[in-house]
């Protein structure tokens, strides 16, 4: 099995202060991994590091054959201006950025794919509506449609189902499962442990550093979860980079 991301004692952080460290392990191609951990434990930071928005402060991260543009990324707080005068289908069409970039024309075929992606996320007939008229759940469906169009082999989702209704969550989970079936690598930050147990074969539990990483049933054991909580409480945000002695 080839690894998409290999991490060797990696530290990610901000302003030279680590937010999460001692990350060692591999995300295999085609794997479906949930990332769980207490608030502020570095889950979002890890995803930003994987896609390349943050570079490692220390350690080695290898992206094996994936460029940044091969990764679709759904941030936790999208900086999207929801009042912007743009239609639903135009937003989805941006998923073709790699093809159209700045000024290549968006052909009929591309528009049709955007419409199809909308159908796939349950928004048939919403194409011409302005995005300002959508509910939070509908808008999340639009963002998933855009990722469908991106067609990336690697997909990173940061709390994709936070504050989303149950029906939408179920529909979008089905999309995630479909991606897994297509052998794409999906890494999703999640909070609902039952959801993780039911849908995600692998789990990475972090609390500023990995607590456990592997098959979900083994990772989500009570003692691991307890340990994660304790470590989150003991963390010092202003600490310098720490190196483990080798050996």
């Amino acid at each position: 099995m080839t690894a998409v991301f290999s991490l060797n004692d990696v530290t990610f952080g901000y302003d030279r202060h680590p937010a999460v460290h001692h990350l060692t392990g591999r995300f295999l191609a085609g794997s479906l991994t949930a990332v769980v951990g207490p608030n502020g434990s570095g889950k979002s930071t890890l995803l930003k590091g994987l896609i390349g928005l943050l570079s490692p402060l220390d350690g080695r991260l290898e992206r094996n054959g994936v460029r940044q543009r091969d990764i679709a990324y759904l941030p936790q707080q999208a900086e999207i201006d929801r009042s912007f005068p743009i239609s639903v289908v135009e937003t989805v069409l941006l998923g073709h950025w790699r093809t159209i970039e700045l000024f290549r024309p968006a052909t009929r075929a591309l528009w049709r794919q955007a419409e199809e992606a909308l159908v796939a996320v349950g928004l048939d007939g919403f194409g011409r509506r302005p995005i300002a008229s959508l509910s939070a759940g509908q808008f999340q469906r639009v963002l998933f449609a855009r990722m469908l169009l991106q067609g990336c082999p690697v997909i990173l989702l940061d709390e994709p189902f936070a504050a989303i209704d149950a029906k939408t969550t179920a529909d979008l989970l089905a999309v995630v499962t479909r991606w897994h079936g297509e052998r794409r690598t999906v890494i999703a930050v999640l909070h609902d442990l039952n959801q993780v147990r039911e849908n995600f074969p692998d789990t990475l539990l972090i609390s500023r550093e990995p607590i456990a990483w592997g098959p979900t049933a083994e990772v989500l054991r009570a003692e691991h979860l307890f340990q994660a909580k304790q470590m989150a409480e003991a963390w010092d945000d202003r600490a310098e980079i720490c190196r483990r002695s080798v050996g």
Partner: peptide
């Protein structure tokens, strides 16, 4: 098109490099 995207969803533009 780039100006519109940069204004509408700057995070997306960064993510797709």
């Amino acid at each position: 098109r780039g100006l519109i995207v940069e204004c509408f969803d700057p995070g997306f533009l960064r993510a797709v490099d």
